[in-house]
Amino acid sequence: MKPDLATITAFVTVARARGFREGARLSGGSASRLSEQIRRLEAQLGVRLFNRSTRSVTLTEAGEGLLKRLSPAIDEMELALDVVNSFRDRPVGNLKLNVPTVVARLILPKILPGFIAAYPDIRVEILTEESFVDVLAEGCDAGIRYDEALELDMIAVPIGPATQRYALAASPAYLEMHGMPEHPGDLLEHACIRGRFSSGAIMEWEFERGDELIEVNPGGPLLVRPGGGTDLAIDAASDGTGIIYLFEDWLKPWLDDGRLVPILQDWWLQFPGPKLYYPDRRLVPSPLRAFIDYIKAHPWTV
């Protein structure tokens, strides 16, 4: 007997969710039913599709191959069914976005409340991730990243401010003890709070003034993971641990109340704001289309 559509859909759901419990949560079903469907599918095909342990569920080589072939067909079927949404008064469904922490912190709070109020039948799920990921493989509708992290063959739509800046700052106590840097090169003689990405790379500090662009790689007493460790880095800087280099908007409350003092302000690097990106395909899910239309109709205001 050939596997039915429900069983195939169960396989794709568990594979994308990387687990039965998460798959059940996303699909609104039960983990036990998904597990039974997968066992039946494996028996019908005569091959194991998942490696199961008490801690994880991962695809076998056969499972990886099957998912790769099935995913485009499942996506196309879901998009075809989504066409029905165009006949509703308001779009209905789920919108899952993959974004870095800085976007979740600085950009989305000014967009999502209005969007959710305008489209109450759309449920929004935000997944924070610092590295670039394959949004489709992660089960996301779209992602938000900066230009250097965008893949080719993606449609990109500006979201948030057109430009942003990196700011450099330290506490008054630190500057009183160690002095104010006068040039980016002076940072090599200071204690600096750095960020190390999950890849192991440490973020370079870049500065520009006119046509001059300078990169420095100073040392310091503290390394944090961007995103989850950023608030710790700010607290450490405001307590006098060292100099911090971060998005100006994120540091703004500390700069405004004097807990941090701006350094080398005429050297702060300006760069383009983030973009919403999604695959170039014929049909766009109606919740994502509604979100794209919303951000285009509501230009960013600071």
Rank of each mutant, 00 (worst) to 15 (best):
A167M: 11
A142D: 02
L108M: 09
A17S: 14
R88D: 09
E138V: 02
G229P: 07
I193H: 01
K296D: 12
S56Q: 15
K275I: 02
L269Y: 12
K68N: 12
E130G: 00
R88L: 15
I244Y: 09
E189F: 12
P226C: 12
A31M: 05
P272Y: 06
E148C: 00
F207P: 01
N85I: 03
S286L: 07
V47P: 00
L34Y: 06
L222I: 13
Y174D: 01
L223M: 11
E182I: 03
A162M: 06
I155L: 11
V92H: 10
I214M: 10
P184M: 04
W254Q: 14
V99C: 04
A290R: 04
R25T: 10
D249H: 05
G114S: 06
G29W: 05
Y119H: 14
P262F: 09
D266V: 01
M177G: 04
K296Y: 01
I202Q: 10
L5Q: 14
E125P: 00
R259T: 10
I263V: 15
K110F: 08
P181I: 00
V135Q: 11
G46R: 10
A156N: 04
I126G: 03
G258P: 03
W250V: 12
R196Y: 03
L187R: 05
D153S: 12
A237E: 10
G195T: 08
G200S: 08
F115M: 07
L108G: 04
G195E: 12
P285Q: 05
Q44M: 13
E151R: 15
V92A: 02
E182W: 01
D235G: 14
R90S: 15
V102W: 02
F132T: 15
L97S: 00
W268C: 00
T101D: 10
G46H: 05
P274R: 07
I8R: 07
P274E: 07
N85M: 01
Y119A: 06
R90H: 11
V284F: 07
L97H: 04
R55L: 12
S35C: 02
P120Y: 02
S171Y: 03
F247D: 14
E78F: 09
L34H: 04
G220N: 08
E176T: 15
